[in-house]
Design a protein around this nucleic acid. Structure first.
Length: 980
RNA sequence: GCGGGGAUUGCCGAGUGGUCAAAGGCGCUGGACUUAGGAUCCAGUCCUUAGUGGUUCGGGAGUUCGAAUCUCCCUCCCCGCACCA
């Protein structure tokens, strides 16, 4: 037995050896070959802004297993790889490194440290990251090496990055077609915006953006007219509560602006003026004023036309929406708390000369009926949660959330809400806003859901961009085509199809240009600095694999890549002579590209992680239908779930990362591949646990030991193997056949379970049962089945299989060897059933031995009378689909000459069958076959039970030894036992 | 909230109408090997019992000869919801 660490060292050694050979002989480079069916698989090209980890490895590992399997099943497989670098991430790496952000440096030192030991060199490399290109270069080369180190059978001669100038031409061409088809539209759109950069910001750009999850919120700004006619604009998420407004709150000490906005006079906070100016308004500041100047004035409530006063409140946040709030104490906890505070606050009343009388007259106005609450939900909840004052923000927040939810979903508008009475709050909310907007008493105001700041320090607000370009995924024709494409696609696992459909349904306009990040310049606004957003770089890029090598090898210049050329290659448009004329590219090269595309496309299989479903994958389907003829649309999408470690998603902040670059040393490649593929089904989150890896390691080692013990055994054909050997061979065959069927359906897990683990177990079993057999036979058998296993399991553990294949004297690459079809004969099935029968029988004996606690000297095995098999067979036929009935059984038996003589026994038997109708619904062996099986395992039974004598009795025979009358109790597949 | 996916025996996790008391692993228990082992190997692991019995698959109701598997209701958990790739 070899010690574990040595075992891993051994296999790591030849893992490297084989990777080098594969690489040198370029055996995975895709070549056109019309004699074989092609199979083009893609797994998303990596985003080259950081190191990859085990979670990524899961996705790529599955892709590689599928690729290798198809390759070994006669397909000409094309499995290329490229690099995504466009968008903001690579740029923001450079940016943070350039700014000497300590956290970024730390992160990137870690990443680089995966590949480099010397701290000085690490710093040097990280230092180069100030140039985005260096980031992309570093990570594309290290990740590629990681992939090759994991034995991935990729074609690395098709590499490109999405930032390459020739690729930019390709994307430009794509947008030309989208524009031609009117899938690009223009409009205004609210986005998160940094006031400092004057730029759109995403989660990456916001400080703690991943935690804050800042979104655009849409408020309704309601115009409360002052007597002067100027509108005090209060922003709300709940316009329906306008009927319960009792007063307006304003921050007395803050600065407000009176502004002329789109021809109207408004008063809003100073901050709001700035924000509104970014939201498609023309604004002129008329004057500045302090909040307290408005206190005690009256405003008119829209719709009801009531006059309500303006009161001071310190809780008003002028940097939130408009800095003006209308008070609905019946339904808004904050308002209620503030009102009570104010009514009891003599100092403030005095300071601002409030009229005590009218203030104390203010009482909540209820306008929503909601189950589980009385007249004034806010009042109730404040009391319940023990709110003392407006300063109890935590309780107030909770109360607000609760009421919002309860009222929104189960509230009904009361009689005092005019036209809206009886409406559900859910509906009234929009209806009231709509009515207000119609009479120009309300307008939409956007605000960020959280107060947040850009990494540059600037505040994040919501801006409305005009003339923003969108991809119109809502276009009915486009959508329809996408649905049509989806319908004809295979989705694995099928359960995700629904998610695609839902995504397609809600997909609508999506902004497609940005001012920041790397990428292709937007062709419709050349020179204005607009970049095509980066997801558009990753939706039809698979087609570029088919031509990129020709472009690079022949030094074709980006400017030669005219749209007409792409049309010619990808859409079969135009004449070759015209393209030669236009681009100056030779006919040979043009046709090489066109042939390559037409040979490899469509993308037969795309495997990816689930996170891409609602965006990348959906867009990929959309863009394919827009750009390519139908025969080139994607065929299959396969999805796998995420990977966890210690119950959490792998992430730097969690400290649970296993870097992809560390896998070969930490475990071994084949070990990792095996375990990744087999520990969970693709649609469940995989939890990586070291102690479970250990199991895989042990089994792998065991397999290795079995295999290496027989690599030198020469094959001899020996017809007359003993029973256990025959059982082993057919069970291995059966397992492998099952395994192949599994992986044909892209079920890698069961492929490993059936093809590997079950077979190792079968060999274990054989070793025990076959101890008494001649060594020569055992070794020959072992050698034969090991050969079968390495041929089939190669897609998962290619290195070990390759090595064993060589050691067994085969000069060909195992990775290119065909996995043969396996034919299971009737005889094989019989052996399998016999083995199962024996396992049950031995278990029964063991159970009894355990219970009686004495070692038997004799084991009598009684095999059922053959007529019982007949009886069961008949029962199976009659009661296939209905309840067992004794009378029906007996009637059927009466007609049967073989059975009619046992009527009395059958009656007993029928009672048992009545009691447990499953006993006859089984696969059976005849009495003879049962006997044969027991004979085959006799030696083993004797050995297992300490040399007990094994005596087999057939119930059909006369004068058998049966002191306890057991023979009649024997059932098919369930012999009766007597231990003495 | 909307949409999707789930809930299985101590834990993880298979299983989608009949050998299902339910694969496999982990953990635990016992044994072997060993100076020792938290290394490795073997065995056991719902309760009961000379095996063919009982109670289980989130809770409740139903369909069926038969349900972990199908239907309905309830409770709880996870994921996505766009300008981030």
């Amino acid at each position: 037995m070899i010690i574990m660490t040595i075992f891993l060292e051994v296999i790591r050694e030849f893992e490297k050896k084989w990777q080098k050979k594969w690489q040198e002989d370029q055996i995975f480079v895709g070549k056109i070959d019309h004699s074989r069916p092609k199979w083009f698989i893609t797994v998303p090209y990596p985003y080259a802004s950081g190191a990859f980890h085990l979670g990524h490895a899961r996705t790529y590992n599955l892709g590689d297993i599928y690729a290798r399997f198809k390759r070994q099943r006669g397909y000409n497989v094309f499995y290329p790889m490229a690099w995504h670098i466009t968008g903001t991430p690579v740029l923001s790496v450079s940016w943070t490194i350039k700014n000497n952000e300590e956290k970024a440096w730390e992160t990137y030192r870690d990443y680089v440290g995966i590949y480099e030991d010397d701290p000085k060199k690490i710093d040097e490399i990280v230092g180069t990251f100030v140039e985005p290109q260096n980031v992309a270069n570093f990570f594309s080369s290290t990740i590629l090496q990681d992939f090759l180190n994991l034995g991935f059978s990729i074609d690395d001669t098709r590499q490109f990055t999405t930032g390459d100038p020739d690729y930019n031409k390709f994307i430009e061409w794509q947008y030309g077609i989208l524009n031609e088809k009117n899938y690009i539209t223009k409009g205004s759109y609210p986005i998160l915006w940094c006031v400092n950069d004057k730029n759109a910001v995403g989660e990456d750009d916001i400080q703690d953006g991943d935690l804050l999850k800042v979104e655009v919120s849409e408020f309704v700004g309601i115009k409360f007219k002052l007597n002067s006619g100027t509108a005090l604009v209060a922003a709300t998420l709940r316009p329906e509560t306008i009927f319960g407004a009792t007063n307006v709150w304003i921050h007395p000490e803050a600065i407000y602006n009176e502004i002329m906005i789109d021809g109207e006079k408004w008063i809003v906070s100073e901050e709001a003026t700035m924000k509104l100016s970014e939201q498609e308004h023309t604004i002129e500041i008329i004057r500045e004023l302090k909040g307290k100047e408005l206190v005690n004035e009256e405003v008119t409530v829209p719709i009801t036309n009531w006059k309500i006063p303006i009161y001071p409140a310190m809780f008003v946040d002028t940097d939130h929406a408009t800095g003006v709030v209308y008070s609905v104490p019946a339904h808004a906890p904050y308002d209620y708390a503030a009102l009570v505070d104010l009514q009891n606050d003599d100092e403030t009343i005095e300071n601002y000369n409030l009229v005590r009388d009218s203030l104390s007259k203010i009482i909540p106005i209820s306008l929503i009926e909601v189950k589980g609450y009385g007249e004034f939900p806010a009042v109730e909840l404040c009391e319940k949660l023990g709110v003392q004052s407006q300063k109890d923000r935590e309780e107030l927040e909770k109360a607000t959330q609760t009421i919002y939810k309860d009222e929104f979903y189960s509230g009904i508008m009361k009689d005092n809400t005019g036209d809206f009475k009886g409406l559900k709050v859910e509906q009234a909310k929009d209806a009231v806003a709509e009515k207000l907007e119609k009479v120009n008493l309300a307008t939409t105001i956007y605000e960020a859901s959280e107060r947040s700041f850009c990494r540059c320090g600037g505040q994040v607000i919501v801006a409305v961009l005009q003339d923003q370009y969108f991809l119109n995924y809502g276009d009915s024709e486009w959508k329809e085509q996408a649905f049509y494409a989806l319908k004809n696609m295979e989705i694995i696992p099928e359960k995700y199809r629904q998610a695609f459909e839902n995504t397609f349904h809600w997909l609508d306009k999506r902004p497609c240009v940005r001012k920041r990040g790397l990428g292709t310049e937007f062709p419709l606004t050349k020179g204005e600095g607009w970049i095509i957003e980066s997801l558009s770089d990753s939706v039809i890029y698979m087609s570029y694999y088919t031509i990129v090598r020709t472009i690079r090898q022949n030094n074709i210049k980006p400017e030669q890549l005219k749209p007409e050329l792409f049309d010619f290659i990808f859409r079969d448009k135009g004449k070759v002579e015209e393209i030669i004329e236009l681009t100056g590219i030779s006919k040979d090269l043009l046709m090489e590209m066109k042939d390559s595309f037409e040979y490899w496309y469509p993308n037969d299989f795309r495997h990816t992680a689930i996170g891409h479903l609602s965006n990348h994958l959906s867009f990929a389907i959309y863009h394919h239908v827009a750009i390519f003829p139908e025969k080139y649309w994607m065929q299959t999408i396969s999805i796998s779930e995420m990977l966890n470690r210690f119950g959490q998603k792998m992430g730097k902040s969690k400290g649970n990362v296993i870097a992809m670059g560390h896998i070969p040393r930490k475990y071994s490649v084949d070990l990792t591949r095996l375990h990744l593929a087999s520990v969970a089904t693709v649609d469940t989150v995989l939890d990586w646990r070291e102690d479970e890896v250990n199991f895989a390691k042990q089994r792998l080692r065991k397999f290795w030991e079995y295999a290496t013990s027989v690599t030198k055994i020469s094959k001899i054909s020996e017809e007359d193997f003993s029973f256990p050997s025959k059982v082993l061979i057919s069970s291995v065959k059966t397992n492998l056949k099952k395994a192949i069927e599994r992986i044909e359906n892209f079920n890698a897990r069961d492929f490993v379970l059936d093809g590997f683990y079950s077979n190792v177990r079968a060999i274990d079993e054989y070793q025990k049962i076959a101890q008494h057999l001649p060594e020569k036979e055992r070794n020959t058998i072992l050698r034969e089945i090991i050969e079968k296993i390495i041929a089939t399991m190669s897609p998962v553990i290619p290195h070990i299989c390759e090595e064993l294949n060589e050691r067994m004297g085969d000069k060909e690459y195992n990775s290119l060897k065909q996995i043969p079809d396996i034919v299971i004969s009737y005889q094989d099935e019989l052996y399998a059933l016999e083995a199962k029968f024996m396992a049950n029988l031995i278990e029964d004996i063991e159970q009894i031995v355990k219970l009686v606690k004495t070692k038997p000297k004799k084991i009598h095995i009684y095999i059922n009378a053959e007529w019982k098999n007949e009886l069961y067979k008949i029962a199976q036929e009659i009661f296939e689909d209905e309840a067992f009935k004794i009378s029906k059984m007996m009637n059927a038996v009466k007609e049967n000459s073989k059975l009619s003589k046992y009527m009395k026994d059958i009656a007993n038997e029928a009672k048992l069958m009545m009691k447990d109708p499953t006993i006859f619904r089984i696969e059976m062996l005849s009495s003879k076959e049962q006997e044969e099986a027991i004979m085959g395992y006799k030696e083993f039974i004797i050995r297992t039970f300490d040399k007990a004598e094994v005596l087999i009795h057939l119930a059909d025979e006369k004068d058998i030894y049966d002191p306890q009358n057991k023979a009649q109790k024997a059932r098919p597949m369930k012999p009766a036992l007597l231990l003495e």
